[in-house]
Design a protein around this nucleic acid. Structure first.
Lengths: 231, 231
DNA sequence: TGTCTCCTTTTGCTCAGACATAATCCTATC
DNA sequence: GATAGGATTATGTCTGAGCAAAAGGAGACA
């Protein structure tokens, strides 16, 4: 009698066979139909199980070629990145936002290179701080491509942060996210209340919409910040 | 004529309605059946589309209560964490591994607390370095619960790293991963070739198997390391 | 008023069958 | 032997139907 659901059972068995069982790295699994027969379920169910295992990063599937256990069984983890506001309010703190600096200037070279902008195209440069109970929680250093989003030049960012405005305004399509550790520079140190050179946990996010670059942001966090997930 | 697949079209439309259309945060969507009728597809297809959007983190679903747009539209990102070896070899560098230190001692308090170990239970403590072309790439500081995995005490970790051994030996079930930025301590500085206090990008991973704690590891990376994903 | 039970709605999952599509394999042809 | 094209096969997707499980709501009853 199955306690849990069918496809979850199937997934468990598959995981076991991959990690300890006979299906070592590189193994070509039987076809969906054969597996469905073996497990006594329909192909739909087997398909769903195998799709889920694929998402976990353990197998690769190609039409006609079949299903193969990856040579390097990587595990993929999902990280949720809520709005700063939600993040702060969920922790029970009061959220406050402040615009520190606002500039319109040609995009610097590193930005043009990273986002594939035409050289010297105009950009809106914003620096903001997000506070949790009057403690600085996150420093936001954002560039917005004015060619793609001229509307942002007239937007007043003193009340509503650029992040929330962008989410409400632009549909996302392509996003590149990076996590890294940086030394606090003068600006970061000042606003996050750290010493220069102290480690800062940063998230960089570049966003495109149908190949047109929209925005690039660096989010720097205060000390001891960590991003966690379970699975 | 649909260029792409049906459920992908449905997803796109749903995303559009959420981000710009009439379905603001908190909206209660129509039932699967009604939506399927509106979109001219079967409930299965609609179900898959809605499940996918749920996975993206934009909506929440509950039986009988219905489907609701999340108040805080978080976006989830998937990060792949391959084996160090695979990571290094993919970059075209030669992989080398070294065991620096091996200890058997009672688990320290912070570890017992974090992993929910009984106090002073024996643990195997390993420190290893992973090199890419003779440059130190990653420092691995690992604790293994000897009560759950007594086999590891007799395992020779001078040739094969504990990570690869564990992956091949223990089926994983519950994993907690954190990213954070640390200051390099003496040990890290020595083996990663950095100055003390320099920022280090760290990954912490705790692993359980059926509620029994298996291992806790801190992976510290050299300067300028970053973890990136696109979606 | 409070609580307990039963009913209904909505999502969760499974099934069998079907067609579409990619990619490999094989064969005919030059 | 090389190449082009068709047959084969495994996955990708869709359908319509049905049962299961969760949970809100209504009504009975103390």
């Amino acid at each position: 009698m199955t306690e849990t659901t069918r496809f979850r059972d199937v997934i468990d068995t598959i995981l076991n066979r991959i990690t300890k069982g006979p299906w070592g790295p590189g193994t070509l699994l039987p076809s969906e139909i054969d597996l469905a027969a073996e497990f006594g379920c329909s192909r739909s169910t087997m398909n769903r199980a195998l799709r889920d295992v694929t998402e976990m990063g353990l197998i690769e599937r190609k039409r006609k070629a079949g299903t193969r256990v990856r040579l390097t069984p990587l595990r993929a983890a999902r990280f949720e990145m809520p709005l700063v506001r939600a993040d702060i309010e969920k922790a029970g703190a009061a959220y406050r936002y402040a615009l520190i600096q606002r500039d319109i200037c040609p995009a610097p070279d590193w930005l043009s290179a990273k986002m594939n902008l035409s050289p010297n195209s105009p950009a809106l440069h914003l620096i903001c701080v997000h506070y949790a109970d009057d403690r600085a929680f996150q420093l936001e250093d954002r560039w917005i491509n004015l060619t793609a989003l001229p509307l942002s030049a007239t937007q007043d960012f003193t009340k509503i942060g650029p992040n929330e405005w962008l989410i409400a305004t632009v549909p996302f399509s392509e996003v590149e996210v990076s996590f890294l550790a940086k030394s606090a520079d003068a600006l970061t140190a000042t606003y996050l209340g750290q010493a220069i050179g102290e480690p800062v946990f940063c998230l960089e996010r570049a966003t495109w919409w149908q190949t047109s670059p929209i925005t690039f942001v660096t989010l720097s966090h205060g000390p001891n910040h960590r991003l966690t997930t379970r699975y």
